[in-house]
Simulated scan of single mutants.
Amino acid sequence: MDDRVDVGYDTSPESAAAVRWAATQAAGRGWALDVVHVWGFAGRDGGGAGESWLGREVQSQVRAVAEEGAVLAAEAAPGVDARPVVLHGPPARVLVDRAEDARLVVVGRRGAGLVAALVGSVATGVLHRARCPVAVVPAAARPGSAREPVLVGFDGSAGAFRALEAGCEQAAHLGTGVVVVTAWTAAAEASRAAYWALGYPSRSPAEVALDEAERVLERARSWAASRRDVEVAFDLAEGRPAQALVRRSRHAGLLVVGTRGRGGLAGLVLGSTSRPVVQRAECPVLVTRGPEAVPEPRAPRPARAAATA
């Protein structure tokens, strides 16, 4: 693995915010930063611009975009080793392939495309397929928010433990604390009243849901007890997990969530909590990765044997 952060840049405000955030990450750890602008067609010299005078002008302008991103990075984190990179092909696929051996890949929540969406197609593609951690940065990310706490969503799963570890590492590096949030709600249990009355005749859905959330949070406390380098606080939040995390992201410098791994649709690696969190959080969101979080490529269909006379 290279000590390198890859960040996509396309001149949009979101990608500029991503470059600035990635620059501080890379500079603080002594890692290199590659500012990647993806344009044109893969497999074609110059991205298909050609070698005419006009083609060379187009290529020069494309290179200028990557160089502009590197300048932004240097302004945000003086001394960072920011390198402009131009590549050709579908942006999400190119960024995923290139980040195969990177420490982190960073993208803006939306790009410079004409269609406005909560999360752009590039960010979505990178989130679904990258094998390294992915950070998604909104345009409104505040440069001075690094000292605010790191927020970690925790539900007791393997992905949540990876998120907790990554959150503690980020907080130790930034010199701030961690707030671990476990959300609970009795809504789902209350909707099955007949089952509930039979299984828990003397307890309300809210009581059981809260007890379970406390048990989950206790697992986080036990794990965090060994961390002497960072202060960890714990918060039980009533409500849906995504809503609770988004609400608290207003006062966080970074929000860390895990992925749910394989299950359901193979290409949909973001779970029901992490997806809306990435879409709506008011701070950068770091989505951690485990080896099982990215679906394996589908094997090609075997060709049908031709009929012979």
Rank of each mutant, 00 (worst) to 15 (best):
M1K: 07
D2C: 09
D3R: 14
T11K: 12
T11G: 10
S12I: 11
W21V: 06
A23G: 04
T24N: 08
Q25S: 14
A26L: 12
A32K: 15
L33G: 08
L33T: 05
V36A: 15
V38R: 10
W39I: 08
G40I: 01
A42C: 09
G47M: 11
E51T: 09
L54G: 05
E57S: 11
Q59F: 00
V62R: 11
R63M: 02
V65G: 00
G69D: 13
A74Y: 00
V80I: 15
D81L: 07
R83C: 02
R83V: 10
P84L: 12
V85W: 04
G89V: 12
P91K: 00
A92G: 08
V94A: 05
L95E: 11
R98G: 10
E100A: 11
A102H: 06
L104K: 00
L104M: 01
V105M: 01
V107D: 03
G108Q: 07
G108D: 12
L114V: 14
A116C: 11
A117F: 03
L118K: 02
G120Q: 06
G125R: 06
P133I: 10
P133N: 08
P138D: 00
A140W: 06
P143I: 14
P149R: 05
P149Q: 07
V152C: 03
F154I: 13
D155P: 08
S157G: 13
A158F: 06
A160M: 05
F161S: 09
A163L: 15
E165M: 12
C168A: 15
E169F: 00
A171K: 01
H173Q: 14
G175V: 07
T176E: 12
V179T: 13
E189Q: 14
R192H: 15
A193P: 03
A197Q: 12
G199K: 14
S202V: 04
S204F: 07
P205L: 11
P205W: 10
E207A: 13
L210M: 08
D211N: 13
R215E: 15
V216E: 02
L217F: 07
A225P: 00
A225Y: 08
R227I: 02
R228Y: 05
R228G: 04
V230S: 09
E238Y: 14
E238A: 15
G239C: 13
R240E: 09
L245Y: 00
R247E: 15
R247C: 12
L255P: 04
G261P: 08
G263D: 04
G263V: 08
A266W: 05
A266I: 08
T273A: 14
S274E: 00
S274L: 03
R275F: 00
P276M: 06
Q279L: 02
Q279Y: 01
A281I: 02
P284N: 11
P284A: 08
P291L: 15
P295F: 14
E296D: 05
R298Y: 02
A299L: 14
P300D: 07
P302V: 10
A305N: 11
A306T: 12
T308I: 07
